[in-house]
């Protein structure tokens, strides 16, 4: 048999590919898309709440110090406690020197970056 004509027949056959029937496939994908949209919405909702919480905390650096101190006291890190306390104290004193709008802006920027990372 002629090779060229064989290859022509093969090409003709290959040019008519079999197509798989849908049979509910598109619907399944649509359902999964909706689920992923819901998850996405939830992530943004949580990010929004975190953002709000950060703004509230930024309004009071003293409260951060108090919270951290309480947390440190509740944990059993007695050996690390002096150095941790020193760090908290230095954090507290530097926060007191920092103007509130600057601190709030810094935290909001951090939240915005986190939000962008989540979106990516």
């Amino acid at each position: 048999m002629n090779d060229n004509s064989d290859f022509n027949q093969l090409d003709a056959l290959l040019a008519q590919p079999a197509v798989i029937a849908d049979r509910g496939f598109s619907e399944r994908v649509k359902q999964r898309m909706s689920k992923s949209n819901t998850a996405r919405r939830n992530v943004f909702l949580i990010t929004g709440f975190c953002w709000l919480a950060l703004v509230l905390i930024a309004a009071s650096p003293q409260a951060i110090y108090a919270d951290f101190s309480t947390l440190a006291l509740s944990l059993d890190i007695s050996s690390l406690y002096p150095s941790v306390l020193n760090q908290f104290q230095s954090l507290s004193s530097s926060a007191q020197q920092l103007p509130y709008p600057t601190l709030a802006a810094a935290l909001l920027s951090l939240a915005a970056v986190a939000s962008m990372v989540v979106r990516a």
Binding site: P17, A18, V19, I20, A21, D22, F25, S26, V29, K30, M33, S34, N37
Partner: peptide
């Protein structure tokens, strides 16, 4: 970010993509 529009695209292309993957 229209789900319905994308679903129509899925319906349009699923036959080929699935046949290729099979």
């Amino acid at each position: 970010h229209d789900n319905d529009a994308f679903s129509a695209l899925v319906r349009m292309h699923q036959g080929k993509i699935r046949a290729y993957l099979v």
